[in-house]
Design a protein around this nucleic acid. Structure first.
Lengths: 219, 219
DNA sequence: TAGATTGTTAATCGATTAACAATC
DNA sequence: TAGATTGTTAATCGATTAACAATC
């Protein structure tokens, strides 16, 4: 009865990349070790939370000393699979699609875009950052042939549902969706939404609250 | 003792735009009303949760009938302030910055980018989608003169901290941050992170889990 | 040794979900 | 009227935070 530890909570997963970014920056100037109290202070988190998050990755620290920064970085990177890159297809070569295609560092985060697709004939045949843009028609077949697991959707909302369906048909197992639409998927396909509008809603609502308060104070 | 109802939970705020997008699509084909049970089913949520979320916006439904779709859309849009646009500055005109500048519909979501800033002299003086690109030096002053409340950071991580500081100095009240860095801000400045890497971490971790399970099944 | 820091168990908090009376 | 759906109160669940013993 081994394996299958209890799954890591999603909030923890979301914080782990922040730790790596912070630790990489810190490694350049600071000493070899770091305490969770310092990390927590600088990242505005609770020290206990940081320790719990780190525990998920299997690293241990030494009382009174802290954690070895390099080993910590390695452990988190390994845990997140950043050293074990998965190939991906991207559909929708608009501005956002181009931005992602130009981000060569994405492969440092476990995902490597190997082909892009669009319906615009003017784009088909060209490349961005070394990635060919191909007719959307050919995607389903290529997913199967190349055994691609990750699909990235950067189309307008109107086409997203259709693209998702084609991806799922082809055998895609995880969709990173940038379109503002809820994607209907079977249980064995993961959908991760990158929702600009959700984020923006939180921002503007909080801002309105803030402005109201400061106005009140100034009276 | 009026005003100051208890604040709306962040998860609710994040779901509200999804409702609007769904309802707009539904309004085109369906009848005038909708039930939370149907919405919940299509958006893969709990009906009670949908009702609670909607209650925050002040709309009420009619038992046995449901909610009037148009009134629901209006109520949510109004609640989120989408009809009450705030001006914003964007810093960092790389691919991602360009993508946001080209998104004219952003003003339909309460935020209107009125100027962009970059340190690259080749970009300064040009425009994208009617938005002028200005020397970063001039930003602080313009924030004050134009009374700008929202700053959008689409620079590389290295410059983000510095840009944020300048924004806060100038008097920005809310920062929409696309750089993978934790921004140090005073209590009266809201920071909303749009974290690609957090989202990607969740996606790839879940995918690995999924692939492991399906492999096991096939044995 | 004394004190800082880890690692874990227990308490708290907030969001989700269940139960159900009110009602069109 | 009967039944579907709302709106709200209570129960559950999971994540965050507090407390504290272990230890270098």
């Amino acid at each position: 009865m081994t394996g299958d530890k209890k799954p890591v909570p999603e909030p923890t997963l979301r914080r782990l990349p922040t730790y790596v970014h912070y630790l990489r920056r810190t490694a350049q100037v600071e000493t070899e070790t770091i305490s969770t109290s310092l990390m927590a202070k600088e990242l505005k988190l609770d020290p206990t939370q940081v320790r719990k998050d780190l525990a998920c990755t299997g690293v241990t620290g030494t009382p009174k000393v802290g954690y070895n920064i390099d080993r910590l970085i390695d452990a988190i990177e390994n845990f997140l699979g950043w050293d074990n890159v998965e190939d991906a297809f991207l559909v929708g070569v608009g501005n956002l699609g181009k931005a992602l295609l130009s981000y060569e560092r994405l492969s440092g985060y476990g995902v490597n875009i190997v082909a892009a697709f669009d319906v615009n004939p003017a784009l088909v045949g060209t490349s961005i950052n070394g990635v060919k843009i191909i007719e959307l028609k050919k995607m389903k077949n290529l997913i199967q042939r190349m055994n691609i697991h990750i699909g990235i959707i950067t189309t307008p909302a109107g086409s997203a549902m259709d693209v998702a369906e084609k991806m799922i048909d082809g055998g895609i197992k995880a969709i990173w969706n940038f379109a503002p639409i809820s994607i209907d998927s079977p249980d064995n396909v993961i959908v991760q939404n990158m929702d600009l509008y959700a984020s923006l809603a939180v921002l503007s609502k909080k801002l309105k609250q803030q402005l109201k308060h400061s106005k009140r104070k100034n009276r």
